[in-house]
Amino acid sequence: MLAYVVRRLWQFVPTMIGVVLLVFFLFSWVGGDPAYLLAGKVSNPEQIENIRRQLGVDQPYTAQLWIFVKQIASGDFGASWSTNEKVSEILATRLGPSLTVLVPLLVISTILAMAAAMLVAYVRASITDRAIMIGCTVGQSISILVYIIVSQYVLAYQFGWFPVQGWGNDFSENLLRYSVLPVIVGVIVSLAPDVRLYRSFFLEEMHQDYVRTARAKGLSETRVMWVHVLRNAAIPIVTNVMIQLPGLLVGAFLIERFFSIPGIGREVILAVERSDFPVLKAVTVYVAIATMIVNLVADLLYKAIDPRVELE
């Protein structure tokens, strides 16, 4: 096991190098000269040179790359181009709100989806099954934007059940008041595709031979589903959840933007709108690292729940 972890950590290195190169390529080479972007309408060549020197983009590429590497190692990406806040501070403060919405979102939507999927798989090919499946398909086809807009308008604006947007300073207030509508919208949006996916996992397991053996032993249907099938279907479900994690952090950006939640996703959008490269570079690198770590943890978790897997 230890050998496996060591080997995987070792494999991080080439991937990390690739990510650094990719980010550098994108932002420093393709992104071109940001000086014009930031100088605005002022086209005084002196001022532009000044900005360039400040940003360090007047140096040759290799030097810039080295600076970038040092930044990653030290965790200090300098200051945001637009707000002049320290990038590391920005990210540190934005992480909390993001998680306050994401963790409940993930937990609730996974549990709900699993329960719904198991129910649907059990009554497969019945009217209920087909109706729910078609409902999911239609639900999936409506853009998340529409869900957000409509729920904000109807539930918050018209009915006044929740605040339309905003964020407070107190943790419990944030959790119980401001997060509720965003979490509801998030759960609704992710429910449809998750139910479909998990249903297919359950169906696949239910047709395996060991289910027939369990029935031949005279075990009750409840036990067959809840103990035998669930335990096997949990494997791809857990894998799926783990894979989605890193993407969720950023993917909630729409929710954060609409509900004015000061999270990482919203920060990313703002950075894109303002061409704030340091923030984008930092987020990309950190999320890439997080993804690799999450993948490793997912593989170890996989080994813990599926005894057949041999980590070599």
Binding site: T15, G18, V19, L22, V23, L26, F27, V30, G31, G32, L37, P246, G247, L249, V250, G251, F253, V268, I269, A271, V272, S275, F277, L280, V283, T284, V287, A288, T291, M292
Partner: peptide, 19 residues
């Protein structure tokens, strides 16, 4: 390398640089 960066983030980043 490509999958270490979440899909949406990658798209937004590219959109930002291409401007």
């Amino acid at each position: 390398v490509f999958t270490s960066i979440p899909y949406l983030l990658l798209i937004l980043a590219i959109a930002a640089v291409l401007n």
